[in-house]
Write a protein that binds this DNA or RNA. Structure first.
Length: 979
RNA sequence: GCCCGGGUGGUGAAAUGGUAUACACGAGGGACUUAAAAUCCCUUGGUCCGUAAGGGCCGUGCGGGUUCAAGUCCCGCCCCGGGCACCA
């Protein structure tokens, strides 16, 4: 029987489906293992060979763990809400649910062809109302909770109301205010709380709810017509589409992730995640310790955050962010016009401009002064856009002697620069050294920076002018999107105050709309719905206008993905997001694999929601994934043909100085890259005159202007030669002519780039599977290199893994007839088997799949050389290969006479006794350089070994009668003779 | 600028401080074949000496160091990839 991958793979994929081989039950009798992939957004483009990389890795681990006796949860689903489907809907009027359905079906087909062991009965889709009912439910829990700073966990908001009724809002309670720049609410007594109107109470509670509606600065993207989260904005433009983003103040649903900043930071320590990923999260959370300092302004004050309270004596001015609420209040009448103009221009400048023009220093004096808490000196208050509204308090105490930005601002506006450290040269710049000695006159003089910091905080606290404080860079997460294709937010409004829908109203399904665009008045698409109001008494959705209006923004893409891993545990539960029994059984994700682009977005919200659900006692763990691996990107190997854009030579008679541009109407000439070098040397290429008569008229060395044209990679062979004939059949290149080498070949240039339609370098897994099979694809993806590393895809290398599988198959067959012997295996055969089992077992545990594939190849090469067809060797080897190449393994397993799926077979154990050797070949080195090899019994003692080596005639010869200074003997490793 | 990764043959890459380049691609040579495909065998870091067998020297981005021994550890650079960035 010849190895027929098409038949074998189709058969087994069908069998797995029919026999529900990979359906998993919640079976508390067995140990569990949860292997999860970050679920994909089903885009219209389908999968390319880069996408399944992580899925293959997790599938290998899942299959391996099954062999090792674990009950494995290995599900897959779709993150199916998202912008592309909606954009497409806007263009075509087609409902996004329809395109999503089609794309998901296509993904499913592609995934099935790769032979994954997913339990598809547990599939989830975030856009399915049965799923998003629970996303909405969790949102309601967030809305109905606050973060209790006293116990450091989320609690029901009812407890807070109780507290307000009993003792009002004092001390710690008033400090939970985090998030964006907000007007701080003052403390109030129980009596005051009771006297508040319903409206006021609800407004106050907004400051505490974990899901809250606030007036906040948001990243508004006019082109997308929506608000973006901070991590959706890159370099001042939207991550998707690259549209400009501006700062805008508007009503906005936010989640109070900042309340969890410290726990999100601390939790990282115990996670088995990559260092760089943890570092990215730490960076993003951005904890800094310092002090909060209040500068009195008449009977009011400005609060600043500083990491360097030790430099307080160097404060020569205060700078407020242009957006700061106190700017208007403090500006004197004389300065008002100037300040207002500045604030207007600064807020109109986009984030992008403000980032790009860092060198442009701008600011304006408010006319007012604050009082220095220590010296009582008058400190001028300025406004400057180098101060960010969203960080700290939106105000800084400027110390030009210790901070370079302050220094530049002071220089620009000729403000005083006071040295704060010994040995600093104020003419050159600020001294930002953290190991300097403070030189300011007063109690800090002579102290080292760290000591001065604690002393300064002490003094501030004594005066009541400030205290030690920790600040985070992390902002609250914008949660509303002015979009259709997302989860509706289950909120209705009475008197402009948001109220939660009752649980019985969930899921709040997406309403029917006539168009998916915003309304003419700029409201989100949901405002178009005819049935979009809530009747409080009937408890049902009614016609728009006939009840309380429902929220019209929808949730962002990361809502569903923040908790989906829990739904897989109990996907069809209608009573709860997942039953406590299921959650208790499956617990945390044991292995989570996905791309590193999610490191600060998804993975932070994912951890935040988990901690929140934990606080409410809904789940028994507060981190979602114990181990996380980022798979590297598979890049494309673009192919480019060189093209002549023009040529010229010195002294050409010409009307202008432009080089001779080649006429667009003529066919463009693509030149094989080696030929191009000849042309550049102007070695007289006769073909050129056929195309351009002007070329013959050249009178001196000709200079060429080159460009390049992308050609589809599938027509390029392993020698970087383009198959011109095949390309012509493909179409799209009719306008080109090809200038080949003398042997008719056409060489292209190769370049590693992102895999993208644009570069014509996309490789589709379907084509690879059609030609080589899924098992070969799986092996090759793993063989390419370490999982976490980015690497280019080159289809030609796949021949190696394809040959390997055929060689493996051939071990079982002789002249296409199954020929497996029951004779006991030889020591050499056993050694190969057990060396392979050892290496593969260890490699899977440490996710080093490329080296396990190499080990399988070594095993097959050795067994082929030994002409081994022993059952006792081939059977365990087949099990070991099955996680990597499951179809061929199943087929051979069946051929060996087994009736049950190989996935139920027990993982073969390796034994050290088969690996032991009687002899060891020692590399004998002189001064660290290997010179010869000598074989000795492996059990020889150090001393005997040394004597035997020195007695060897070849060694004697090299010693030339000298006595070695030292002989290093490492048993079973090396002997080093030092002369 | 700061923080993470990473630099090893023509290419993808391997190597608990212990024989650098396993495995694979590509390339070159050969066998089988009327031929091709497939398959199998040999060679393949550089360089020098030798007719040959064989041997010498150099070699893991660069420069130092530790060590009997460094791709691996330490110090200082350079380059590439990723993340963050007027963050007070």
């Amino acid at each position: 029987m010849a190895y027929d991958h098409k038949k074998i793979e189709a058969d087994w994929q069908r069998k797995w489906k029919e026999e529900k081989t990979f359906h998993v039950k919640n079976d508390p009798a067995k140990p569990k293992y949860y292997a999860l992939d970050m679920f994909p957004y089903p885009s219209g483009a389908g999968l390319h060979v880069g996408h399944p990389l992580g899925y293959i890795a997790s599938d290998i681990v899942a299959r391996f763990k099954r062999h090792a006796g674990f009950n494995v949860l290995h599900p897959m689903g779709y993150d199916s809400f998202g912008l592309p489907a909606e954009q497409y809907a806007i263009q075509t009027g087609q409902h996004p649910a329809k395109t999503t359905e089609e794309n998901a079906a296509r993904y499913r087909e592609q995934l099935d062809h790769i032979g994954f062991s997913f339990d598809w009965s547990r599939e989830v889709r975030t856009s399915d109302p049965k799923f998003y009912k629970w996303t909405q439910w969790i949102f309601l829990q967030l809305f109905n909770s606050f973060y209790d700073a006293r116990t450091n966990k989320a609690r029901p908001i009812s407890e807070l109301i109780e507290r307000f009724e009993k003792s009002g809002c004092q001390g710690q309670d008033a400090e939970v205010l985090t998030g964006d720049v907000e007007e701080i609410i003052g403390p109030f007594t129980a009596e005051e709380w009771k006297s508040f109107s319903e409206r006021t109470r609800q407004m106050v509670l907004q400051y505490f709810r974990l899901a809250y509606l606030s007036e906040a600065w948001v990243n508004w993207c006019p082109a997308l017509g929506t608000v973006l989260a901070n991590d959706e904005v890159k370099d001042g433009v939207s991550e998707r589409g690259g549209h400009p983003v501006e700062r805008k103040r508007m009503h906005q649903w936010s989640l109070r992730i900042t309340a969890y900043a410290q726990r999100l930071l601390d939790g990282l320590d115990e996670l088995d995640w990559s260092g760089s990923l943890k570092e990215a999260q730490r960076n993003w959370i951005g904890r800094s310790t310092g002090a909060s300092v209040r500068f009195a302004v008449d009977d009011d004050f400005i609060e600043v955050f500083t990491t360097r309270p030790d430099t307080l004596f160097g404060v020569s001015f205060i700078t407020l962010a242009p957006e700061h609420v106190l700017v208007g209040k403090y500006t004197t009448d004389a300065q008002r016009a100037e300040v207002e103009a500045y604030v207007k221009s600064a807020t109109n400048r986009s984030e992008r401009e403000r980032q790009a023009e860092v060198d442009k220093i701008s600011g304006v004096f408010t006319g007012r002064y604050a009082k220095h808490p220590f010296t009582g000196a008058e400190i001028p208050i300025w406004v400057g856009d180098y101060v960010l509204a969203g960080y700290g308090t939106g105000a800084v105490m400027a110390v030009p002697g210790g901070d370079q930005r302050d220094w530049r601002f002071a220089r620009h506006f000729d403000l005083p620069i006071i040295p704060v450290t010994e040995g600093a040269d104020m003419a050159k710049g600020a001294d930002e050294r953290k190991d300097a000695v403070i030189c300011s006159e007063g109690f800090l003089k002579g102290l080292k920076v760290p000591d001065a910091i604690s002393r300064a905080i002490e003094e501030l606290e004594k005066l009541g002018a400030g205290e030690g404080r920790i600040n985070y860079r992390l902002r609250d997460a914008a949660f509303g999107r002015q979009r259709y294709w997302g989860e509706p937010i289950p909120i209705y409004y009475k008197d402009d105050i948001p109220y939660p829908l009752p649980e019985s109203a969930l899921p709040l399904e997406l309403p029917v709309v006539d168009k998916f665009q915003p309304t003419e008045t700029g409201e989100p698409p949901l405002a178009r719905a005819k049935q979009w109001a809530w009747d409080e008494t009937k408890k049902k959705i009614v016609a728009t206008g006939e009840g309380a209006p429902l929220e019209t923004t929808t949730m962002p893409g990361w809502a569903g993905s923040s908790w989906y891993y829990l739904r897989y545990m109990d996907p069809h539960n209608e009573e709860r997001f997942a039953s406590p029994e299921a959650i208790n059984y499956w617990q945390q994700i044991d292995l989570y694999i996905g791309g590193s682009e999610h490191s600060t977005g998804h993975l932070l919200y994912f951890r935040f929601w988990t901690k929140f659900l934990y606080d409410l006692g809904l789940i028994p763990f507060d981190e979602p994934a114990k181990k996380l691996v980022n798979q590297g990107m598979i890049q494309g190997m673009s192919a480019k043909a060189r093209v002549i854009l023009g040529f010229d030579w010195p002294g050409r008679e010409t009307e202008d100085s432009e080089p001779l541009k080649l006429n667009d109407r003529k066919k463009r000439v693509l030149v094989s890259s080696s030929k191009a070098e000849l042309i550049e040397n102007d070695s007289g290429i006769p073909e050129l005159s056929q195309h351009w008569n002007a070329y013959d008229g050249r009178t001196s060395k000709t200079y060429f202007e080159w460009g390049s044209v992308y050609v589809p990679v599938q027509y390029v062979n392993g020698r970087d030669e383009l198959d011109v004939a095949e390309l012509s059949k493909h179409g799209g290149f009719e306008e080109f002519e090809f200038l080949t080498e003398t042997d008719g070949g056409f060489k292209v240039l190769r370049d590693v780039e992102k895999m993208s339609k644009r570069w014509l370098n996309v490789v589709n897994p379907d084509e690879i599977i059609e030609r080589y099979g899924a098992d070969t694809l799986r092996l090759y993806e793993m063989f390419l290199g370490p999982l976490e590393q980015s690497k280019p895809w080159d289809t030609h290398g796949i021949e190696g893994t394809s040959r390997f599988l055929r060689k493996f198959w051939n071990l079982f067959f002789e002249s296409d007839i199954l020929s497996v012997s029951d004779v006991a295996p030889s020591a050499a055969e056993l050694k190969t088997l057990h060396a392979t089992l050892k290496k593969v077992t260890e490699d899977i545990e440490r996710m080093s799949f490329n080296t396990s594939v190499a080990q399988f190849m070594i095993a097959v090469n050795e067994l082929s050389a030994l002409k081994c067809n022993k059952r006792d060797i081939l059977e365990p080897l087949t099990i070991a290969l099955s996680p990597f190449a499951p179809h061929i393994a199943e087929e051979l397993w069946k051929q060996l006479g087994h009736s049950e799926s190989i996935s139920k077979a027990r993982w073969p154990q390796w034994h050290a006794r088969f690996l032991e050797e009687n002899n060891f070949t020692y590399p004998i080195s002189f001064n660290g350089k290997t010179r010869l090899q000598l074989e000795f019994p492996a059990n020889l003692t150090k001393d005997d070994l040394e004597a035997a080596v020195l007695a060897n005639p070849e060694v004697q010869q090299r010693l030339e009668g000298k006595t070695p200074k030292k002989v290093i003997v490492v048993p079973k490793r090396i002997v080093n003779i030092v002369l």
